[in-house]
């Protein structure tokens, strides 16, 4: 998962201090693996350098930091580009897709479309593997079957998430 993009997406839900962003990240995406303050500030500094974020001036926040971060138009473009780019099926996919879907709900972006694009990407990979399988000896077929079942598990998650989007949007708004 790209933690910088997750932080960028959180800033897109409303300008925020680094300290608050770290806690918001842990609450929404941390799942037992909190992000280090150092990582947060390094990512924020990089995104300011790249023009994706800007600071709104120094004032007292809830933590020791005094900078309030806001997303720029380039930052919003980066988020849109990220949402509209399906990921190649891979072991770390679930994390990345989870973050994208949650952020899409928080930002009122089209999470259905995002999931559909991902489903198409998965099915395209399954077609590719199925073609390989049809002309392979048994041992290779077994290996390809293993990959197919893994992709299928992702697809089931995509279908389940797709069916739960309305509830998810409500929950995200309630906790917003």
């Amino acid at each position: 998962m790209d933690k910088s993009l997750a932080l960028l997406g959180l800033v897109d839900t409303g300008s925020s201090y680094g300290y608050d962003l770290k806690h918001r990240y842990d609450e929404v995406f941390g799942r037992g693996k909190p992000i280090a303050f150092g990582q947060v500030y390094a990512a924020l500094a990089r995104m300011i350098r790249d023009g994706l974020l800007t600071t709104l001036g120094e004032e007292a926040g809830a933590g020791p930091d005094r900078k309030r971060y806001a997303i720029t138009e380039a930052g919003r473009d980066r988020i849109r580009e990220w949402f509209s780019t399906p990921d190649r099926p891979a072991p770390e996919l679930a994390d990345n897709l989870f973050v994208k879907v949650v952020l899409a709900c928080m930002l009122d972006s089209d999470a259905d479309e995002l999931l559909d694009m991902q489903r198409s990407e998965h099915l395209a990979r399954m077609r590719e593997l199925t073609r390989i399988k049809q002309h392979s000896p048994l041992l290779e077929r077994l290996a390809v079957d293993h990959a197919l079942f893994q992709i299928e598990a992702d697809l089931r998650w995509i279908d389940m998430t797709s069916a739960r989007l309305t509830d998810m949007r409500e929950e995200v708004r309630r906790n917003g």
Binding site: L123, M126, L129, T130, E152, L155
Partner: peptide
């Protein structure tokens, strides 16, 4: 079934 759909040339999703 996605594994069945993978034998097709392409898929469409109805929602």
């Amino acid at each position: 079934d996605a594994r069945t759909a993978a034998y097709a040339d392409r898929e469409v999703i109805v929602r």
